[in-house]
Amino acid sequence: MSILLNEKTSILVQGITGSEGLFHSQQMLDYGSNVVCGVTPGKGGETATENNLPVFNSIEEAQKEFLIDATVIFVPPRFAANAILEAINQNIGLIVCISEGIPVRDMKKVKSALNNSSSILIGPNCPGLITAEESKIGITPGFICKKGSIGILSRSGTLTYEAIDQIVNVGLGMTTAVGIGGDPIIGSSMIDILKHFANDDETKGVVMIGEIGGSMENEAAEWIKDNFNKPVVSFIAGQTAPKGKRMGHAGAIISEGSETADAKIKILKKCGISVSKTVSEIGETMLNLIEE
């Protein structure tokens, strides 16, 4: 078991002929992901990757020949919201948007469309998700992952890799790692992903990595206290971040007191969640918690 993604999940790549899309489609295929086709408007009829995957002009065209479970979006930010809306319109179950730099106003439209659909959106501005030794959607390096019992969920890309690496190195291994994205508006919140981990028997514990800005960690902490029975280790990046400055991620900006790392850590602890003091202790903290 795993969450959201397994070896059977059939994947379409939006923006498959662009340099990023092409490179990562190949990486996904090499990892074993069931990537079946791609879409680039105007390039229908061509093929892409070493596997000669067919390219279609639209998702609708692709769906005439393939059953699509998931799509991953590698299109430039100014077109990315429309790519998400197209996927929602075509009822794709899982939509993963890697693109960084989508205007907030565009994401407001996407959010409304999502509310009236059955699609799940991961991202944007995220590394995607990976189920160890089965499949990956996005850009997470596959070789660092080993199957095991810990689920990982994070707002940051390289911190996701760091957490995977530590969890694997302490011998626990992982089920699925989900990078939910660093933008102010994202498709799936921490609570949304935690609900999936709660229902997955193989996942025995969860690493949850947050950062400054917004209040998602605070809401997740309260939710965990009342609803989640598995061990959780959290880490919050940005304890030294100055107020009012955007720290790389569009969503990583402190505009009020409750959005600081210290405030979030306080709430997490109050809700009984173990917080790793530094980024290098995530793996060990989880190991200690699991062994207790």
Binding site: T158, L159, E211, A237, G238, Q239, M247, G248, A252, V279
Partner: peptide
């Protein structure tokens, strides 16, 4: 550092060990 989250976490651990980060 590569990546915004890791960059913040790196600043934090510098501080944790008694130093002061010069930048993000």
């Amino acid at each position: 550092v590569n990546g915004a989250g890791l960059a913040m976490a790196t600043m934090d651990i510098v501080k944790h060990h008694g130093g002061e980060p010069a930048n993000f």
